[in-house]
Amino acid sequence: MKSTSLAPSVDTSPPATATAAPAAETVVIKIGKHDVPVVKGGLYDRFRSRPPLSVIAAESPAADLSWFKGITKEKVDIGFESWSPNFYYENSRVTAIFTADLARLRELIPPKVLEQVQPLQVWPGKGVVALTAYAYHYCDNDSYNEIGLSVVTNKPGSSNWGPFSLMGQSFSDDFWGYVLKLPVDTELAQVRGVVGYNLPKWLTRIDYSEGDNNVVVTIYDSQTQALDVTLQTRKLDVSSSKETLVTNSFTNVDPRGRLTTGYTTSRQLRHASTSSADAVKLMLTDGSLSRFIASLKLGKMLKYEYVPDFQAALYAPSLLKSDARR
């Protein structure tokens, strides 16, 4: 298998196939117009995004829940009744940030979104994308894995100063983007994300595994069940890291054609980063997600983030002011 930490190459080896993991017992619930299987007796089955923190403390006594105590949930209608924000109590992630072809990124963002935000140009012809693998070990939606591929943009209504805007977002830990792809490995996460948050989610197998020195994430093609993308990253020293709060916001279009924004605030408990290219290996095949990533013409890896321990609050999307009266 060929691999590179910069521009990914196509793997010509025989594809691996997905094997089904033992299925947990499920019950079917209604989300909007969808019948969705969820883990029987899981947090979502019992509490529908509003579990008491006392329950979380009893089921996960090692979790520090102090941050969540200062956040109030509100009932929302996002195509179904829910509570915002959605809480993620124990999670891990790895993120690789690459340069990519600016013209291609512009092609992939809907014209209406481009009226408000544009890809940040870090140097001529090059924008920035972030590829993130999430492992949500324990959250209001039970547990699941997710892969996020996003274009880094300016904030709606603000000037786009390219690399200066990127540095400003980095210094303030307040990032904006447009989500290109967001596969997940549970139907609950898929339906909630598509119906409630207008996000490009689909269901496929995602494996997130940790070794002694690395994290290996494998993503399978939803149509062929063959190995599609492999992301292998190095574990970094997080012993001296300090707690930080990071906000990630996105702009997209709802089913009525209106512009919306949503955001997540993350409490990073242990984290580290590096710009060393050998910290990340991205391996592609001829799968559908691999072909899409290859079309972005990834270049230099700007930054790698290793976050083995974080918590998060995901807020329901709201209309941009320009579309709020429609």
Rank of each mutant, 00 (worst) to 15 (best):
S92E: 05
R48Y: 05
T274S: 12
T260W: 02
Q121R: 15
V113Y: 05
Y88G: 05
G287S: 04
P163Q: 11
Q311V: 12
T233A: 13
I219L: 04
D64S: 07
F250W: 12
L53Q: 04
V122G: 07
L43N: 11
P22S: 05
S222I: 07
T274C: 06
W161F: 15
M283D: 11
D237A: 01
I219S: 01
R326E: 12
D174P: 06
R46D: 11
L236F: 00
P163W: 09
V39I: 09
N214P: 07
A18L: 13
L289V: 02
A20T: 11
S322W: 08
S9E: 09
W176M: 01
L320V: 10
N248Y: 15
R205W: 04
L302N: 07
A294S: 13
D142E: 02
L149H: 02
L245F: 14
E81A: 09
S288W: 00
L120H: 06
K40C: 00
S9V: 09
D212Y: 05
S273R: 14
G41Y: 01
N213Q: 12
L284F: 00
K181S: 14
A96Q: 05
E146D: 07
L282F: 08
P317Q: 08
Q121P: 13
R234G: 04
L269W: 10
T72F: 10
A189K: 11
L182W: 01
P61D: 11
A63D: 07
S9M: 03
S82W: 01
D286P: 00
S49P: 03
F310N: 00
D221R: 12
D212E: 14
E74K: 10
Q116L: 03
R325H: 00
S172R: 14
Y88M: 08
N160P: 08
A21H: 12
M167V: 11
T186V: 08
Y44S: 02
R258L: 09
I293H: 00
D101L: 01
N141R: 12
A272K: 05
P15Y: 00
A21K: 13
R104W: 00
P85Q: 01
K181Y: 04
D173H: 12
D286L: 00
A226Y: 11
Q225N: 13
F80Q: 07
T265V: 14
R270P: 07
V184P: 06
S49W: 08
A130L: 02
L289Q: 07
A7E: 14
D309W: 04
S222P: 10
N213E: 13
G70K: 12
A18K: 07
K75Q: 12
I71V: 08
K155R: 13
A57G: 03
E187I: 10
V28I: 14
W123T: 15
D254C: 13
L182H: 07
